[in-house]
Nucleic acid binder design. Structure first.
Length: 428
RNA sequence: GGAGACGUGGCCGAGAGGCUGAAGGCACACCCCUGCUAAGGGUGCAUAGGGUUUGUAGCUCUAUCGAGGGUUCGAAUCCCUCCGUCUCCGCCA
């Protein structure tokens, strides 16, 4: 979430910035709530202070054996007044927080202004799309022809948008995961293994809740006696558990930058995407992803974004997959992001570049909710900047390899970098 | 899953309705002293939020002793619910 102080002091400027991403900040509403907040909070705190001092006097009087009845009578009325002020204060605070929780991050000044995908800006291209002297197939046709992909079985076992991979394709996926983790570890990212289910606080921390509940799979865990909501959610990305490793933590400056990598399955309900990418492995409810996460000092976060993006690119380069880097425009960026680069890989089956990684700098937007902080010496803790990026989406990498490395006879050439992970096999 | 014990600041550990935001110790920071890397003395040392303010300075207020609720003029201390940790039993990979 945004800094409430900034919203208070620079409301108009913030509203302007948010406008570029197509978000209208209800300035009047916030001003009204803010006025009320101040009024009730001050009143409640004043009454609390009064109660505290009176209570202390009673304590002292009692200790000295004096009659406390007059003092008690004096604060008799205070109680209901205080209760009302406290109630009002928490109500207004709650409303204000609800509004603020729905406000997206403000874009970095370097982000191109635009309305949609169309306005994203290509930063660079790497590699050349391969040319084929035969009719190319898409990954579904390629995989089905070899008996590696069974959509019907997945539907029977679970439902649509799940998949069953068999034999060499399943093994290729495992090889890719291993390969990616090894590459990132070699670059200094610490590998972590994390839970695939998370609680609501974690999702709030990274910004998936409260706004995007519909995209998540929920596991009911509440019992009837629970006073708090204990439902768990399947992670939509490793970003959630990994970044939350530092929720409510204060790390020493010497531990920075923190660079982590995790492989997890990801679960997305894909609500609202009916009819899009229904064929094959592009858009699934469950998919494998290797995720890079960094927590850094604020002044380093934009350099870290470049480095993290380059690290994700490295995988594509080692696999010799053609791609381009897109700077997302203000209108296309995710809720929590201040700046995002998408990596788009060339898919011959679609004759198009498709997203395979998304690398974002969230600045302190997530850290504020998370209370993820660092400290220099004995100074006051400061909010970290958080970043993450896919390195890469494994399912889509699988698609890219099948399609880019296909041969006329349906055999798939194994990218050289991957051969050590497949017992030296040159083709599948 | 059953039985019991316990959750206090970066750590250890007092406190058992008021004078406790919290003794004492360790760690840490700064200063003093000390003729070697050791010891001693002093000071400081939680987090968040609000008000005031040009101010992330100062002053001041509020909240926080696992979490939430309750009793009370007043709760770290009493009651309830939940979560977690430990020990024993059961079960299991």
């Amino acid at each position: 979430m945004l800094d409430p102080k900034r919203i208070r002091n620079e409301l108009i400027q913030v509203a302007e910035q948010l406008k570029t991403r197509g978000f209208t900040l209800d300035v009047a509403q916030i001003e009204a709530l803010e006025t009320q907040r101040k009024e009730w909070q001050v009143k409640a705190q004043d009454l609390q202070a009064l109660r505290n001092s009176r209570s202390k006097e009673i304590g002292k009087a009692k200790a000295q054996g004096q009659d406390v009845a007059p003092l008690l009578a004096e604060i008799e009325n205070l109680k209901s007044e205080l209760e009302q002020a406290e109630l009002k204060a928490t109500q207004v605070q709650g409303q204000l927080e609800e509004v603020l929780a729905g406000v997206p991050n403000t874009p970095h000044e370097s982000v191109p202004v635009g309305k949609s995908e169309e306005d994203n800006v290509e930063i660079r291209r790497w590699g050349t799309p391969p040319s084929f002297d035969f009719a190319v197939k898409d990954h579904v046709d390629l995989a089905e022809a070899r008996g590696w992909y069974d959509n019907d079985a997945a539907v029977r076992i679970t439902s649509s948008r799940f998949s069953v991979l068999k034999g060499p394709l399943a093994r290729l996926q495992r090889a890719l995961i291993q390969f990616m983790l090894d590459q990132h570890a070699a670059a200094g990212y610490q590998e972590v293994y994390v839970p695939f289910m998370v609680n609501q606080d974690s999702l709030r921390g990274t910004g998936q809740l409260p706004k995007f509940e519909a995209d998540l799979y929920k596991i009911s865990k509440n019992s009837e006696h629970d006073t708090q909501d204990r439902d768990l959610y399947l992670i939509p990305t490793a970003e959630v558990p990994v970044t939350n490793l530092y929720r409510e933590q204060i790390v020493d400056e010497s531990e920075l930058p923190i660079q982590l990598v995790a492989h997890t399955p990801c679960f997305r309900s894909e609500a609202g995407s009916y009819g899009r990418d229904t064929r094959g492995l592009i858009r699934q409810h469950q998919f494998e992803k290797v995720e890079l996460v960094q927590l850094v000092q604020p002044e380093n976060s934009y350099a870290a974004l470049e480095a993290l993006t380059a690290q994700a690119e490295l995988i594509l380069q080692k696999l010799a997959l053609p791609y381009r880097v897109m700077a997302l425009c203000t209108g296309d960026m995710g809720f929590s992001s201040a700046k995002t680069y998408d990596l788009e890989v060339w898919l011959p089956g679609q004759q198009a570049y498709r997203e395979i990684s998304s690398c974002s700098n969230f600045e302190d937007f997530q850290a504020r909710r998370l209370l993820a902080r660092f400290r220099i010496g004995n100074a006051k803790p400061q909010l970290l900047h958080t970043l993450n990026g896919s390195g890469l989406a494994v399912g889509r990498t699988l698609v890219a390899i099948l399609e880019n490395y296909q041969n006329a006879d349906g055999v798939i050439t194994v990218p050289e970098a991957l051969r050590p992970y497949l017992g030296g096999a040159e083709s599948l």
